[in-house]
Protein backbone atom coordinates (compact mmCIF):
# COMPACT_ATOMS: atom_id res chain seq x y z
CA UNK A 1 0.00 0.00 0.00
CA UNK A 2 2.72 2.41 1.01
CA UNK A 3 4.78 1.47 -1.99
CA UNK A 4 1.76 1.98 -4.21
CA UNK A 5 1.34 5.49 -2.82
CA UNK A 6 5.01 6.21 -3.42
CA UNK A 7 4.60 4.97 -6.96
CA UNK A 8 1.60 7.24 -7.38
CA UNK A 9 3.60 10.16 -5.98
CA UNK A 10 6.43 9.53 -8.43
CA UNK A 11 4.07 9.36 -11.35
CA UNK A 12 2.29 12.58 -10.43
CA UNK A 13 5.66 14.20 -9.82
CA UNK A 14 6.63 13.18 -13.32
CA UNK A 15 3.32 14.50 -14.60
CA UNK A 16 3.94 17.83 -12.90
CA UNK A 17 7.44 18.05 -14.33
CA UNK A 18 6.23 17.27 -17.85
CA UNK A 19 3.11 19.42 -17.79
CA UNK A 20 3.99 22.29 -15.51
CA UNK A 21 5.36 25.72 -16.39
CA UNK A 22 8.92 24.47 -15.83
CA UNK A 23 8.39 22.08 -18.74
CA UNK A 24 7.12 24.92 -20.91
CA UNK A 25 10.22 26.95 -20.15
CA UNK A 26 12.33 23.88 -20.92
CA UNK A 27 10.37 23.53 -24.17
CA UNK A 28 11.22 27.14 -25.01
CA UNK A 29 14.92 26.41 -24.54
CA UNK A 30 14.68 23.29 -26.74
CA UNK A 31 12.72 25.17 -29.38
CA UNK A 32 15.22 28.03 -29.57
CA UNK A 33 18.15 25.61 -29.46
CA UNK A 34 16.78 23.69 -32.43
CA UNK A 35 16.12 27.02 -34.20
CA UNK A 36 19.80 27.94 -33.81
CA UNK A 37 20.82 24.54 -35.22
CA UNK A 38 18.61 24.87 -38.31
CA UNK A 39 19.49 28.53 -38.79
CA UNK A 40 23.20 27.84 -38.63
CA UNK A 41 22.94 24.77 -40.87
CA UNK A 42 20.86 26.64 -43.44
CA UNK A 43 22.97 29.80 -43.59
CA UNK A 44 26.18 27.81 -43.99
CA UNK A 45 24.80 26.16 -47.12
CA UNK A 46 23.44 29.24 -48.87
CA UNK A 47 26.53 31.14 -49.99
CA UNK A 48 27.88 28.76 -52.66
CA UNK A 49 25.24 26.84 -54.65
CA UNK A 50 27.87 24.66 -56.37
CA UNK A 51 29.28 23.62 -53.00
CA UNK A 52 25.81 22.80 -51.68
CA UNK A 53 25.12 20.67 -54.76
CA UNK A 54 28.43 18.87 -54.42
CA UNK A 55 27.75 18.07 -50.74
CA UNK A 56 24.60 16.26 -51.90
CA UNK A 57 26.30 14.63 -54.90
CA UNK A 58 29.07 13.24 -52.70
CA UNK A 59 26.61 10.91 -50.93
CA UNK A 60 26.19 9.10 -54.26
CA UNK A 61 22.56 8.38 -53.44
CA UNK A 62 20.48 10.79 -55.52
CA UNK A 63 20.45 10.83 -59.33
CA UNK A 64 22.26 13.79 -60.92
CA UNK A 65 18.95 15.43 -61.88
CA UNK A 66 17.98 15.79 -58.20
CA UNK A 67 21.37 16.87 -56.87
CA UNK A 68 20.94 20.57 -57.55
CA UNK A 69 17.28 20.98 -56.52
CA UNK A 70 18.02 19.21 -53.20
CA UNK A 71 21.28 21.07 -52.61
CA UNK A 72 19.64 24.40 -53.35
CA UNK A 73 16.28 23.82 -51.62
CA UNK A 74 17.51 22.13 -48.45
CA UNK A 75 19.13 25.19 -46.82
CA UNK A 76 15.92 27.15 -47.33
CA UNK A 77 13.89 24.34 -45.79
CA UNK A 78 16.23 24.50 -42.80
CA UNK A 79 15.93 28.28 -42.59
CA UNK A 80 12.13 28.06 -42.76
CA UNK A 81 12.15 25.57 -39.88
CA UNK A 82 14.43 27.92 -37.92
CA UNK A 83 12.11 30.90 -38.40
CA UNK A 84 9.02 28.88 -37.47
CA UNK A 85 10.76 27.56 -34.34
CA UNK A 86 11.76 31.06 -33.26
CA UNK A 87 8.14 32.15 -33.68
CA UNK A 88 6.84 29.02 -32.02
CA UNK A 89 4.29 28.62 -34.79
CA UNK A 90 2.97 25.12 -35.47
CA UNK A 91 5.63 23.72 -33.18
CA UNK A 92 4.44 20.13 -33.35
CA UNK A 93 4.26 20.08 -37.15
CA UNK A 94 7.68 21.75 -37.38
CA UNK A 95 9.12 19.27 -34.88
CA UNK A 96 7.73 16.33 -36.88
CA UNK A 97 9.34 17.68 -40.06
CA UNK A 98 12.60 18.32 -38.15
CA UNK A 99 12.65 14.76 -36.87
CA UNK A 100 11.91 13.36 -40.32
CA UNK A 101 14.70 15.44 -41.84
CA UNK A 102 17.16 14.36 -39.16
CA UNK A 103 16.24 10.71 -39.73
CA UNK A 104 16.98 11.22 -43.44
CA UNK A 105 20.35 12.79 -42.55
CA UNK A 106 21.26 9.99 -40.16
CA UNK A 107 20.27 7.41 -42.79
CA UNK A 108 22.38 9.21 -45.41
CA UNK A 109 25.45 9.42 -43.19
CA UNK A 110 25.07 5.80 -42.11
CA UNK A 111 24.75 4.74 -45.72
CA UNK A 112 27.92 6.61 -46.70
CA UNK A 113 29.73 5.04 -43.75
CA UNK A 114 28.48 1.56 -44.60
CA UNK A 115 29.50 1.90 -48.25
CA UNK A 116 32.98 2.97 -47.19
CA UNK A 117 33.01 6.28 -49.06
CA UNK A 118 34.90 9.16 -47.44
CA UNK A 119 32.83 12.32 -47.24
CA UNK A 120 32.12 15.22 -44.93
CA UNK A 121 28.40 15.20 -44.11
CA UNK A 122 28.11 18.81 -45.24
CA UNK A 123 25.74 19.31 -42.32
CA UNK A 124 26.98 22.83 -41.58
CA UNK A 125 28.38 23.83 -44.96
CA UNK A 126 31.39 22.26 -46.59
CA UNK A 127 30.78 18.68 -47.61
CA UNK A 128 32.16 16.60 -50.43
CA UNK A 129 34.92 14.07 -50.48
CA UNK A 130 37.51 14.19 -47.71
CA UNK A 131 40.48 12.07 -46.82
CA UNK A 132 39.54 8.79 -45.16
CA UNK A 133 41.30 9.91 -41.96
CA UNK A 134 39.08 13.00 -41.78
CA UNK A 135 35.69 11.31 -41.72
CA UNK A 136 33.72 11.74 -38.49
CA UNK A 137 30.65 9.63 -39.17
CA UNK A 138 30.06 8.55 -35.56
CA UNK A 139 30.25 12.11 -34.20
CA UNK A 140 27.96 13.32 -36.97
CA UNK A 141 25.39 10.62 -36.24
CA UNK A 142 25.54 11.21 -32.46
CA UNK A 143 25.13 14.94 -32.97
CA UNK A 144 22.12 14.47 -35.23
CA UNK A 145 20.68 11.99 -32.72
CA UNK A 146 20.90 14.73 -30.07
CA UNK A 147 18.98 17.08 -32.36
CA UNK A 148 16.50 14.26 -32.99
CA UNK A 149 15.87 13.97 -29.24
CA UNK A 150 15.21 17.71 -29.09
CA UNK A 151 12.67 17.34 -31.90
CA UNK A 152 11.10 14.37 -30.13
CA UNK A 153 10.57 16.44 -26.98
CA UNK A 154 8.78 19.12 -28.98
CA UNK A 155 6.56 16.51 -30.64
CA UNK A 156 5.72 15.15 -27.18
CA UNK A 157 5.24 18.57 -25.56
CA UNK A 158 4.75 21.24 -28.25
CA UNK A 159 3.38 23.78 -25.69
CA UNK A 160 6.19 26.18 -24.89
CA UNK A 161 6.49 29.60 -23.31
CA UNK A 162 6.59 32.72 -25.48
CA UNK A 163 5.23 30.97 -28.55
CA UNK A 164 2.84 32.04 -31.29
CA UNK A 165 0.99 28.78 -30.61
CA UNK A 166 0.28 29.78 -27.00
CA UNK A 167 -0.78 33.25 -28.08
CA UNK A 168 -3.16 31.85 -30.70
CA UNK A 169 -4.63 29.37 -28.22
CA UNK A 170 -5.36 32.08 -25.64
Amino acid sequence: MASQQAEHGRVSGFRRAVDGPAAEWFGLAVRLGLAVVWGWAGLAKVSDPAEAAQAVRAYEILPESLVKPVGWGLPFLELALAVLLVLGLGTRVVAVISAALLLVFIAGISSAWARGISIDCGCFGGGGTVDESQTTYLQEILRDTGFLLMSAWLIYRPRTKLSADAWLAA
Binding site: K68, W72, F76, L77
Partner: peptide, 14 residues
Protein backbone atom coordinates in the same frame (compact mmCIF):
# COMPACT_ATOMS: atom_id res chain seq x y z
CA UNK B 1 5.57 28.65 -45.56
CA UNK B 2 8.00 25.73 -45.82
CA UNK B 3 6.98 24.85 -49.39
CA UNK B 4 7.26 28.49 -50.46
CA UNK B 5 10.72 28.81 -48.85
CA UNK B 6 12.00 25.72 -50.70
CA UNK B 7 10.62 26.83 -54.07
CA UNK B 8 11.99 30.37 -53.64
CA UNK B 9 15.33 28.88 -52.54
CA UNK B 10 15.70 26.67 -55.60
CA UNK B 11 14.83 29.57 -57.93
CA UNK B 12 17.17 32.03 -56.17
CA UNK B 13 20.09 29.57 -56.07
CA UNK B 14 19.52 28.66 -59.69
Amino acid sequence: VIAAAVVVGVVVQN
